[in-house]
């Protein structure tokens, strides 16, 4: 995957700078040690690992087909057959929640990887080239940031039409700006470092300088932005689906489940409570793990 290729570059880079006497491997070891000491973050990481397993093995774990309707069993409470009850079409709520994990996690991760790709490219371009390229990109970012998040996502979904892959795009377009801003700032700082200056002065190819010196130095920021961006994206997907502009029926998504359940809160309150709990668990795990990761990787960033 594209994301991991950054790590590979980083390693090459480490050898590079080790010669200059800067110890980068130990930086990651230190960070990892700090992270391991953070119990809350490690618990959340295991929850997330569990979620990933659920995503992969959904067909084997879920007791029923999430889309199998059985109108005679509609809106039942928990029973031996339907562990957490059934929805208005008699579909198994537990199975739908399990399949909803797939939507949530994939939307969260894919949209953020996309956003990071856009954000890093734009940020590096703006920061490295400066001048009118920077002004242009900065103005575009200002306009993107001028819309409240939800309205922006809705607008894009309106243009693209509903559907999971369109959600990826909408949420990526929503969140690249913050990454780009941070990266731009970092690149501006890095450009003033001697070894980068030396590289530029000695006529190193721009592309090489960017890929070998600038991007690897932003790795921490990138990891942090991805991790902390995911919960926001998951929330936005839930909101869009709740409004009927996101994932379309019959695909199970936590947001659209809550939307459907809303009509039956007096009859079967559990139906609306459970998908929400699922959202909370995933989002909170990403938030706490992300915070821990940020503190471990870059204590300076803590107060931003």
């Amino acid at each position: 995957m594209k994301f991991f290729s950054f790590f590979y570059r980083k390693n090459k880079y480490i050898e590079d700078v080790a010669e200059q006497g800067i110890e980068y491997t130990s930086y990651y070891q230190d960070s990892f040690r700090r992270l391991k000491k953070n119990n809350a973050a490690m618990i959340c990481l295991s929850v997330l690992a569990l979620m990933v397993l659920i995503v992969i093995f959904a067909p084997w774990i879920s007791p029923q087909d999430p889309n199998a309707q059985s109108l005679k069993d509609a809106l039942r409470g928990p029973s031996a057959q339907y562990f957490l009850g059934t929805d208005e079409y008699g579909r198994d709520i537990l199975s739908r929640i399990i399949y909803g994990t797939r939507i949530s996690l994939s939307v969260g991760i894919i949209s953020q990887v996309l956003a990071t790709a856009i954000g890093v490219t734009m940020g590096v371009l703006a920061g490295y080239y400066g001048g009118y390229i920077d002004s242009l990109i900065s103005r575009v970012m200002e306009i993107f940031a001028a819309f409240p998040e939800l309205i922006f996502a809705m607008g894009i979904m309106y243009v693209l039409g509903p559907g999971v892959s369109n959600i990826f795009i909408a949420l990526a377009l929503l969140s690249w700006v913050s990454t780009a801003r941070l990266i731009r700032g970092q690149v501006l700082q890095l450009k003033q470092k001697e070894y980068v200056e030396a590289c530029i002065a000695s006529g190193g190819a721009s592309f090489q300088i960017i890929v070998r010196h600038l991007v690897p130095n932003c790795i921490s920021t990138i990891i942090i932005m991805v991790t902390l961006g995911i919960p926001g994206a998951i929330m936005s997907e839930a909101a869009l689906s709740f409004l009927g502009l996101g994932v379309q029926p019959p695909t199970a998504s936590w947001g659209s489940m809550i939307s459907a359940a809303q009509s039956y809160i007096s009859l079967i309150p559990l139906y609306s409570v459970l998908p929400g709990l699922a959202i909370i668990i995933v989002v909170i795990s990403f938030n706490i793990f992300g915070d821990g990761l940020r503190d471990a990787l870059d204590p300076k960033l803590k107060n931003q």
Partner: peptide, 18 residues
């Protein structure tokens, strides 16, 4: 606070309704 940040507002609304 982190719990409040992680709960979707519409879900909180429904829970409050219930």
């Amino acid at each position: 606070a982190i719990l409040g940040m992680s709960a979707p507002s519409f879900w909180i609304a429904i829970i409050l309704q219930i």
